[in-house]
Simulated assay, not measured.
Amino acid sequence: MKKETGEQKSDVLQMLLDLHKNQDSPSSLTMNQIKGILVNIVVAGTDTTSGSTEWAMSKLMQHSEIMEKVKKELNDVIGVNNTVEEFHLPNLRYLNSVIKETFRLHPVLPLLVPRCSARSLTVGGCTIPKGSRVLLNMWSIHLDPNIWDNPMKFQPERFLNEPEKLDFRGNDFQYVPFGSGRRKCLGINLGEKMLSFILASLLHSFEWKLPQGEKVDLSGKFGIIMGKKNPPHLIPTPRLTNLELYKRQL
């Protein structure tokens, strides 16, 4: 892509290829390294967001009373004559609690990213030898009845009382869907905003219903990323009063 001045405008892929071509540079990349970076972008930045969107929509379709609370908040904050904008997101407190509760019940990475012990140490009375691969079972922590009341219940309200304490930054070890410390997910801010914007747009712009005779399927598919075994099939109906608003979103 070129600007009107004739100057070449590089995208991320072109920048990576330029680093591959310049093998004399200390920051040069091999083709395998470029492939690894692109796979990380797709898996960590795309598949995780789409998977979380499916889980959140499925939970809301299963709990109509919570869906109504979300729609009321969207009406109050955005209005039926407007579309979702980024500046609306900080004011969507209930939607944010729905997202947090979705991550608690269905964390994107149920075992987080594997760690490797750099030295032998003892944690909680257990000895971890140097070089051991350590997996943190975040799914189990998020469902621990000693930490959470009614842990199996989808209850977004549990995050409304202390939203700053139970955030996505991993400051409280009872809730760390994106990890914690220096090795936590680098894309927390982007992922949080993307998921909030996508869900807010879908729920504000459309009414959703299941096909006749179909029920919500909450079966999971275990893997590095915990996705739904069967993606939801939903039927949208325009919700905004001004149909011209839909053209602006295209």
Rank of each mutant, 00 (worst) to 15 (best):
V80I: 15
T102S: 05
L92F: 02
I99Y: 03
H88Q: 05
V77M: 09
N96T: 15
N75W: 03
I99K: 07
V77T: 12
V77Y: 07
E86D: 11
F103M: 12
N81G: 12
K72D: 07
T83I: 14
K100A: 12
G79Q: 07
E73S: 04
N81S: 14
K72C: 03
T83M: 03
Y94M: 05
V84K: 01
R93C: 13
H88T: 07
E73A: 03
V77W: 01
L74Y: 00
V77G: 04
V84W: 08
E85R: 13
F87D: 14
G79A: 02
N82E: 12
E101W: 09
I78Q: 04
E73F: 01
S97N: 13
F87H: 15
E85A: 10
I99D: 04
F103Q: 05
S97W: 12
E73R: 01
E85S: 07
V84A: 01
S97K: 12
P90Q: 00
N81D: 14
K72N: 04
F87I: 14
Y94Q: 10
I78N: 04
S97C: 11
T83R: 09
R104H: 08
F103Y: 14
H88E: 04
Y94V: 06
R93L: 10
Y94T: 11
K100N: 10
E85F: 10
R104W: 06
T83K: 12
I99W: 01
V80N: 15
N75H: 09
R93P: 01
G79N: 02
N81P: 11
Y94F: 14
N82I: 09
K72L: 10
K72T: 13
Y94I: 05
V98N: 00
L74A: 00
T102Q: 03
V77D: 07
E86K: 08
F87N: 14
Y94K: 06
E73Q: 05
H88F: 07
N82V: 07
F103H: 13
V77L: 07
L74I: 00
E86C: 00
T83S: 13
S97V: 10
L92V: 05
N75Q: 09
F87M: 15
L89P: 00
L95R: 12
T102W: 06
P90I: 08
H88A: 05
L74H: 01
H88R: 04
E86I: 02
V98A: 03
